[in-house]
């Protein structure tokens, strides 16, 4: 491997280096049979720590990620109903998604206390930007269940 300052362009499937205690496979790479390979076309970035070196590959377009339970997401309310509102998830953490994911916010998930007196129409309107946490995924409706977080 060469020095940090150089820009090394790599292509998918390119063998980068040996995988051992010193070299660790980071994002954009994968390990196979004791070697680290690139899985993106882009540049190699090395992160030096005391005893280890993490090898990362950054592509041209940042790869889009998928919401996972526990993620904090920013969503826009699209449809408000008496029982729930539908949202489109725009960001996960501080990463802006290339295309939105559907989410559903149920009435009982709007706030933690005084759940009986929640009125959806008074809480949300279409177009509102909300901060929420992903809880699970409903397979039948193919959307993520999210819980509202009071900012």
């Amino acid at each position: 491997m060469s020095k940090d300052k150089d820009i090394i362009v790599c292509v998918p499937g390119q063998r980068l280096c040996v995988s051992d205690k010193f070299n660790i496979a980071g994002p954009g790479t994968y390990e196979q049979q004791g070697y680290i390979y690139s899985k993106l076309a882009g540049v190699i970035k090395l992160i030096q720590k005391e005893n280890t070196r993490t090898i990362e590959v950054h592509g041209i377009t940042e790869q889009s990620i998928v919401p996972a339970p526990g993620d904090i997401v920013t969503a826009m309310v699209t449809i408000v109903n008496q029982r729930f509102c539908k949202c489109s998830i725009k960001c996960i953490g501080d990463i802006v998604l290339t295309r939105p994911y559907r989410g559903i916010l149920r009435k009982e998930d709007v706030r933690a206390i005084d759940k009986d007196n929640i009125q959806m129409y008074k809480s949300f309107r279409p177009g509102d930007i909300i901060l929420a946490r992903v809880v699970s995924f409903i397979l039948s409706e193919k959307c993520y269940v999210i819980i509202h977080i009071k900012v």
Binding site: V11, G28, Q32, Y37, K39, A41, T61, Q63
Partner: peptide, 11 residues
């Protein structure tokens, strides 16, 4: 796929 930035194992 490479242009889309989707991670692939090899060509």
């Amino acid at each position: 796929l490479i242009d889309a930035g989707i991670p692939i194992k090899n060509y």
